[in-house]
């Protein structure tokens, strides 16, 4: 007698909202990784541009363009990072009530999620104010 394998379909992640949220959370990591790489590139461009321009003044313009991409598309890359961070934080805070050590109803879960969002927004605003005060 044959048993039938019952494995998930290739598009299993479309089946439930929880699976979709999980996929969003995992893929938002790519956006954050792009943002992280952008900053490495940005810092590298600032450090090495002076050395390269000083020693090789007649540098290839294409190379020069590539080197200075982070300085030109500053807003775009930061937007990518910001969107990734927002998606990741919200979806992560959504599953946070799961790891609390007591039984919660759906209403309580939503309440804790909204409280976490409020705390996150409050802390972000505080950090922003502190940063702006120290810069100005």
């Amino acid at each position: 007698m044959k048993k039938l394998a019952n494995t998930p379909a290739p598009d299993w992640w479309k089946e439930k909202p929880a699976y979709k949220i999980y996929y969003f959370r995992e893929y938002s990591g790519i956006l954050i990784a792009i943002w992280g790489l952008y900053w490495l590139w940005f810092i590298g461009a600032i450090i090495f541009s002076r050395i390269i321009l000083a020693y090789f003044p007649d540098i290839d313009p294409v190379f020069k363009y590539i080197l200075f991409i982070p300085l030109k598309y500053y807003f775009l890359f930061n937007c990518i990072g910001f969107i990734g961070a927002i998606i990741h934080t919200i979806t992560w805070l959504g599953v946070m009530p799961e790891i609390l050590p007591f039984n919660l109803s759906k209403k309580q879960r939503h309440l804790i999620f909204s409280l976490l969002i409020l705390v996150w927004l409050g802390l972000s605003t505080l950090l922003f104010i502190l940063l702006m005060n120290s810069l100005l």
Binding site: K16, A18, Y22, E26, V95, E98, I99, P101
Partner: peptide, 18 residues
């Protein structure tokens, strides 16, 4: 990877994800 669906379906509120 913390999908969390195991805790959603648990009929006894065991919360395996947690």
């Amino acid at each position: 990877n913390f999908v969390g669906e195991c805790s959603n379906v648990c009929p006894k509120n065991v919360d395996p994800a947690g």
